[in-house]
Design a protein around this nucleic acid. Structure first.
Lengths: 241, 241
DNA sequence: CGGCTGATTGACGCGCATCAACACTGGTGG
DNA sequence: CCACCAGTGTTGATGCGCGTCAATCAGCCG
């Protein structure tokens, strides 16, 4: 089931959005933001478990998470699930759709979420009339490319989990970096994403807890020693940001 | 050492280029190609072993391989080399540079190569005046994203090598798919790219040869049984194309 | 209460990295 | 012409990390 998009949904007010600095309007002057806003429509709220799109759905739009969290996933030819990434506020969704106009994964909301949408057919004209938009767009693409490089590293299970936690802590904390984070995804999702077995993720988390680096209470993680956590990731060629 | 770019190098004639269908001009009408060409400059010939750019070099350009082959590589914090990809004719180089205006890897020519270059500052105006250019650009970005997903799979060594060969055969063969290919890169490069040990790549190639799937003569590979090779990759969620 | 799903922990085996020995190649110089 | 060498590729022996399987437990809901 794909969402029916309502073109008359009220416009987003980018200037009031907490993401406006890291999102598309980042490089756009106030004067032009108004024009941008006219073409941004909101989708949502999507409830936890709802799909934003599915593999094979037509993709003729740019989607950006405004709030919440999405899991991208697919199923390979022998039925194994894979997760190319999680998308948090400010992240783009479905860039790969520009390859052939079709979504390549499923996107499911892990928490209640709002999404901003710009029709792909509008993008060329917007790029032409709004200075700074194309760089912002390319920046987002580049970010997406880079985020994929992390996973492809030949990293140990411990490096993967540590880098994952460290990265998520930085991305989830909209406010202060207190070292406390609530994971929106299950252990199994983390494992699939990191290309590890679920049991391995559990083991690593237990070990990190035993060593006093983190404290776990199911999905609530408290990073007790950020410094030692970072030490574990120091050989990770790319962190995600 | 970075290349000094000569802005007066003769323009490329895209319509005469064998790549024109898969490259940027793919979606651009004849009328507009002339305008595109005026902004495309050539770099090269670069000889085998020469660098196109290095990590940290400013990146304010779009680079596309016209002929030859490049290896992207970097060195992580403990001195291990990593190779995020090889770039063949029609591939883009350095998209990640749009993230912060700096190249993130080194790019070294594995064979004598020619490169097309468009200044990044020209891109917004070109996108505005040339219909079809932005989609082509986004298409290239999307391709780059997708190519990274392959490596991040939890694949066996055999799956990796098989998929690598199969993909390369499709990309290297400009003319007919005869199943014969000459690898521009060393075994060790392949190993680093695929996140395997050099010894493992050798072993897999030997095994494939023993099983009659391929024939190897140093860097010349002959795919004897494309069908069985594809069988080995059938569980690879994404091939590179 | 029982059933179900997700997480943890232990036992075991396999795939691949590591280390090392050896073969092969092209380049250089006598 | 061969001797020598460095770089690259191949192959064998060994060990370890992590996947797999399975048992147990905690939390949730009807």
């Amino acid at each position: 089931m794909q969402l029916v998009l309502n073109e008359t949904t009220p416009d987003v007010i980018c200037t009031l959005c907490s993401l406006s600095k890291t999102c598309l309007p980042g490089n756009v002057s106030r004067i032009h933001i108004a024009e941008l806003e006219r073409h941004v429509h909101q989708i949502g709220p999507l409830q936890r478990g709802e799909h934003l799109f599915r593999t094979g759905n037509p993709s003729n739009e740019l989607l950006i998470v405004q709030s919440g969290c999405f899991k991208l996933y697919g199923v390979d030819t022998i039925g194994r699930e894979y997760i190319p990434g999680f998308r948090l506020p400010g992240d783009v969704l479905g860039l790969h759709g520009f390859k052939n106009g079709m979504h390549r994964y499923n996107a499911i909301a892990l928490t209640d979420s709002m999404v901003c949408r710009i029709s792909a057919t509008r993008i060329p004209e917007l790029v032409g009339s709004i200075p700074g938009l194309l760089p912002a767009l390319l920046h987002m693409f580049a970010q997406d490319v880079i985020s994929h490089v992390f996973l492809s590293g030949s990293l140990s299970a411990e490096e993967r989990v540590a880098a994952f936690l460290s990265n998520l802590e930085g991305r989830l904390q909209v406010s202060m970096h207190t070292g406390e984070l609530h994971l929106p995804m299950s252990r199994s999702d983390i494992a699939v994403y990191l290309r590890l077995a679920g049991a391995t993720v559990s083991r690593i988390l237990s070990r990190l807890e035993r060593e006093g680096i983190i404290a776990c209470d199911s999905r609530d993680i408290h990073i007790l020693n950020q410094q030692r956590l970072n030490l574990l990731c120091e050989n990770v060629p790319f962190t995600l940001n």
